[in-house]
Amino acid sequence: MKKKITIAALATSMLVYLLSSCYQNKEDILALPRVSFRNEVVPIVTAGPCGCHNTSVTVRAVLFSDQRTNTIFYDAILARRGAFADWVNGGTHPGGGAIDFSPSEKNIIKKWIAQGEPYDDGAGCTVSGNLTYTNDIVPIYNTSCKGATCHGGIAAPIDYAKFVAKKDVLLTILNSGGNTGHPGGALSLTTCTVNKMKAWIAQGQPQ
């Protein structure tokens, strides 16, 4: 009888050990899917309660998209991450008014912010071919750098000559994803923007 009890105890101990070992083996545990910035967050802020940020008409609000050209300003959306965090965690629309996300939209944005870096999916464009300042960098500057509270407003405008002269500063900004190097503070840059500007610099910054 004692022998049977001993064998049963050993078997139970072995089973517990094996189960605990499997549980602690992180390679066997599938990571929870991340909230997609481009597929889940961007559709929320380019529609519904953010309508004034998605218009072809000149407005006071920062534009998230332009209906005329079907262009989405990903950098501008990323840059408002802090405002979104305040809003969905008990705050209100930064511009005032009875504007709000739905509970499900708030939940998506909360999860996106809580999961941390990288906030951008790291996709969105394919960088290939010859890049030029006029065709590729100016559009980025106009949508991500230029504005009343940025360059061309309270900060000095940047032209081709300054981009070339400040190449080292620009590379520091790009290599950190916008976190360091920018004299005006941290920036929120998408992977697409970073890769495109770095490719342009690598090609010799053609005009």
Rank of each mutant, 00 (worst) to 15 (best):
M1A: 08
K3T: 13
K4V: 15
I5K: 11
I5A: 14
A9I: 06
L10C: 12
A11K: 14
T12W: 05
T12I: 11
T12E: 00
S13C: 10
L15E: 00
V16W: 04
Y17T: 15
S20F: 03
S21M: 12
S21R: 04
Q24M: 06
D28N: 08
I29A: 14
I29N: 08
A31P: 02
L32I: 14
R34K: 14
F37Y: 05
F37C: 07
N39F: 02
V41N: 03
V41G: 01
V42L: 09
V42T: 04
P43K: 13
P43L: 14
T46M: 11
T46V: 08
G51P: 01
C52H: 09
N54Y: 08
S56A: 13
S56I: 13
T58M: 06
F64Y: 14
S65D: 03
D66H: 05
Q67K: 14
N70G: 09
T71Y: 10
I72Q: 04
I72R: 01
I72T: 10
F73C: 02
Y74Q: 07
A76Q: 03
I77A: 07
R80F: 07
R80D: 03
G82N: 06
G82H: 12
A83W: 11
D86G: 11
W87F: 11
W87D: 12
W87H: 10
V88H: 01
N89V: 11
N89T: 15
G91K: 12
H93W: 09
P94L: 04
P94R: 00
P94H: 08
G95E: 12
G95H: 07
G96L: 03
G96C: 05
F101C: 04
S102K: 09
S102H: 06
K106I: 00
N107V: 13
N107E: 15
N107Q: 15
I108E: 00
I109C: 01
I109K: 05
K111P: 04
W112T: 03
I113F: 08
I113E: 07
I113P: 10
A114T: 06
D120F: 07
G122Q: 11
G122L: 05
A123T: 13
G124V: 10
C125S: 10
S128I: 11
S128W: 01
G129P: 02
N130T: 15
T132Q: 12
Y133M: 08
T134R: 07
N135H: 12
D136C: 09
D136L: 09
D136Y: 11
D136Q: 06
I137T: 05
I140Y: 00
Y141K: 09
N142S: 11
T143Q: 09
S144N: 00
C145K: 01
G147Q: 02
A148C: 08
A148S: 07
T149P: 08
C150E: 07
H151P: 01
I154V: 09
A156V: 15
A161E: 14
K162D: 02
V164N: 02
D168L: 10
T172R: 09
T172M: 05
L174E: 14
G177T: 04
G177Q: 05
G178N: 02
G178K: 00
T180I: 10
G181A: 05
H182I: 03
P183M: 05
G184H: 13
A186Q: 09
S188T: 00
S188N: 08
T191N: 15
C192A: 12
C192S: 11
V194N: 03
K196A: 07
M197K: 00
A199R: 00
A199S: 12
W200D: 03
I201S: 04
Q203I: 05
G204H: 04
Q205C: 13
Q205G: 12
P206F: 06
P206D: 08
